[in-house]
């Protein structure tokens, strides 16, 4: 069954799928290798730290669970923004977009708080393998979230200027794909990096 958003331009491509959407999926496939490399470096080095602090001394699982939950909920609000624009309800789309961006910012603030706490307790990029692999992995994820937030806010402004119409639902869908991908990367990180090495 083909999923086609209503009121979008008729497609004229050989495969019948939109160029931009295909590009986005290829990009996400490529990103899988990017985060795969970073995560495997973390896993490879997880038991090889010569000095502390070690993961189990620093991780605050309840706190990270809450921030994971926040990112997960931002995915829900993102998908509601998409549902809204596909119905032609620009007003609600705008609300959900801002909601998504704010949840993203909240997640980033949580990460900043967590990083600061780790740093105060003696963990930096230089301290040990845990510091190097953890900060680079979660830092790159945070950078992806930040870029997503900037994109969301930019689109929100465009919609306030009246530049986003129902026919632009593909734009929202593509941003959504990126946002959900960042979310599923975090699902993997939360389990492999936090829960499995936190004990």
């Amino acid at each position: 069954m083909a999923y086609a958003a209503p009121h979008t331009q008729p497609l004229e491509t050989s495969t019948g799928v939109d160029n931009r959407k295909l590009l986005m999926w290829l990009f996400l496939g490529s990103e899988a290798l990017f985060f795969g490399s970073l995560i495997s470096a973390y896993l490879l080095y997880r038991n090889r730290n010569l000095t502390g602090p070690f993961p189990r001394e620093l991780y605050d699982i309840p706190f990270t669970s809450v921030s994971s939950f926040i990112l997960l909920m931002s995915s829900v609000s993102m998908v509601l923004a998409l549902a809204a624009i596909q119905r032609g309800d620009i007003r609600r789309m705008r609300i959900w977009l801002v909601c998504t961006a704010l949840l993203g910012i909240l997640f980033l603030s949580g990460q900043a708080y967590e990083f600061t706490g780790f740093y105060d307790r003696g963990l930096s990029l230089r301290t040990n393998l845990f510091g190097s692999t953890f900060f680079v992995l979660t830092g790159f994820h945070g950078a992806h979230v930040s870029i997503g937030v900037i994109i969301l806010l930019s689109v929100w402004v465009r919609s306030l200027q009246g530049k986003i119409k129902q026919s632009d639902s593909l734009t929202i869908e593509l941003i959504g794909l990126y946002w959900h991908f960042v979310d599923i990367v975090w699902i993997v990180i939360f389990t492999l990096v936090y829960l499995l090495t936190g004990r």
Binding site: A112, Y119, S146
Partner: peptide
């Protein structure tokens, strides 16, 4: 200071 690393994008 990784806090700044993430703080800058914020």
């Amino acid at each position: 200071n990784p806090a700044l690393l993430i703080g800058a994008p914020l």
